[in-house]
Design a protein around this nucleic acid. Sequence first.
DNA 1: CTTAATGCAAAATCTTTGCACCGGA
DNA 2: TCCGGTGCAAAGATTTTGCATTAAG
Lengths: 137, 137
Amino acid sequence: MPARNTVQRSIIEDELRRLANHPTADEVYEAVRAEHPSIGKATVYRTLNLLSDEGEIGRVRINNGADRFDHQAFAHYHVRCVECGRVDDVMIALLDEGVNEAAAEASGYQILGHTLQFDGVCPVCRAGEKNDGASTA
Amino acid sequence: MPARNTVQRSIIEDELRRLANHPTADEVYEAVRAEHPSIGKATVYRTLNLLSDEGEIGRVRINNGADRFDHQAFAHYHVRCVECGRVDDVMIALLDEGVNEAAAEASGYQILGHTLQFDGVCPVCRAGEKNDGASTA
DNA sequence: CTTAATGCAAAATCTTTGCACCGGA
DNA sequence: TCCGGTGCAAAGATTTTGCATTAAG
């Protein structure tokens, strides 16, 4: 396959693992640039795309705009805070295969997989709005 | 509740219902503009956002770029064709509430809801690539 | 009459691409 | 050597915003 083992590539992969959470491509870029100012944004985007295509890393598409990348390649679910936009892992059992089969029957599609994303309020934001109502930033 | 009942608003809502499928904001805009050339793109985007915030319509975020809007407000799932990008409804039973509860426990979030999106190949695209050779990795 | 909603275009986001040069295998 | 990778900036795609004007209530 492709993949030439460049320095940039491991730097980016490293940084992603270090950020550990679910950074956007731009956040990875900023982090990388902090230590290696000469690395270009395009390289970060290209590399992240490459890695996720290869299955080395995961990509989480969130309702808030930017894609986020996940250092964990194996399938798992995510939850997004509707208040602050943070994204965390949801380590619950994967849905039964029967769900995919039911979807195939209901839609006529050949189902390749699924994505389950939860929406909620993270512990921090819950604490911050003890009261309720008006979400003031 | 809607704030002000403008003509544009019902035109846009109407058009969305007529398109029926899962058009992007831009597709709605084009359709609306065909009959009402004076309506601006920003109004379409603003109205679509407004309606989905109000829960009048649904919003589906897809992996291929633009958001799509759904004239059906009630919760249901979607499948996206990885070949052509088409989006269709998947009318299967909603996941058990237990899933949300499990997610809440696993993440510490207060879970408000979830989104389940399937990826697959639509009937049309499957027909177009008859020979598959079972090489689906 | 009041003021939210509209329309237009410019601005803001996020991501990809063209091109010349560089470095890994 | 050879050609994919890189860096830079400009181009693309999508969505939002500022502001004067219009129209709903």
